[in-house]
């Protein structure tokens, strides 16, 4: 996710069971964004990794003024990459347990 200039991490321990998980997103390199982000710090939010769409969260962040419309794809990609990693880790854990 570093190419996007944004960083997304878990804001809580992943127990492997919960669908809705707390995540934290912040700007690591503002130069990689097209628009100017609101200089706010880390944005914490909860996200349902099975039901929700990263594009929707990205749009809500834009609506809330954290990012500009031109960066919607970048924000969505950062969240999508992190969600993919969480899912991959969970699948791997299940395989190990089996």
């Amino acid at each position: 996710a570093e190419e996007t200039g944004l960083r997304v991490e878990l804001a809580e321990e992943d127990d492997g069971k919960k669908n809705s998980i707390a995540m934290r997103l912040w700007v690591e390199d503002p130069k990689k964004l097209k628009g100017k982000p609101k200089d706010n710090g880390a944005i914490e939010f909860s996200f349902d990794i099975n039901k929700e769409n990263p594009d929707d969260v990205a749009q809500e962040m834009i609506d809330s003024g954290f990012f500009q419309e031109c960066d919607s794809k970048t924000v969505a990609k950062s969240i999508r990459d992190r969600v993919a990693l969480i899912k991959w880790r969970r699948e791997r854990c299940q395989q190990v347990n089996v």
Partner: peptide, 27 residues
């Protein structure tokens, strides 16, 4: 640090807090 809360009309809550120094990338 202090945290602020923004609630989107769709219902999602965003809690904004300062990024801890230790999490910032090394120059």
């Amino acid at each position: 640090g202090s945290a602020t809360q923004v609630v989107h009309s769709a219902g999602r809550r965003f809690i904004v807090s300062p990024v801890p120094e230790s999490r910032l990338r090394e120059p």
